[in-house]
Design a protein around this nucleic acid. Sequence first.
DNA 1: CACCCGATTATCT
DNA 2: GATAATCGGGTGT
Length: 193
Amino acid sequence: MNSIPRSFFQRNTIVVAQELVGKLIVRQFPAGNCVVRIVETEGYLSNDPACHAANGKTLRNQSLFGPVGHAYVYLSYGLHYCLNIVARDDSVEAGGVLIRAVEPIMGIELMHFYRPNVVEHNLTNGPGKLTKALSINRTFDGYDLVQGIDLKIAEDSLSYSHVTNTSSRIGISKAVDQPWRFYSSGNRFVSRG
DNA sequence: CACCCGATTATCT
DNA sequence: GATAATCGGGTGT
């Protein structure tokens, strides 16, 4: 399980969003570890009306302006946490990649414990679902995902053969035509939107 | 301080 | 397909 260098995230946000499809997220607990594969992402840039950083830095979105490779976690609709990875080049002041869906690889029982009473294909097929299954909340806002222990991003040591499709982003009302959503073609954990 | 509304999900018809 | 659940940031009084 190779780690990913911080320079990977110091690039155009949309390129990073596309290339994160297929990468792994590792969540370590005292009781055991969970490993999931990223199968759906969306890119958000500070000069993009749909981005939380579009109107400048606030207490809530300050992680999007912080160092790349760290997490931006926010509360959505007052109910669900969503996980982003801060990624941008020097041409913008903020940017991040929303993790919209993941495929469970290891520690599936533990994920079912955090998200009971669902069948496996509904375990992590949405941005609010995967954070609950991995027990990710606001305490991870600003967490370093490159050097972190409890939560980190890793390269897939197995070669995951896949095709990445592109579409417009889901669930937003501004900048709806930007083709900045990426998902693993045919993967059953991709959210239906 | 009141009001609006959102990068969602579960549950009902 | 429609809607409730639930909360905090942003805006305007």
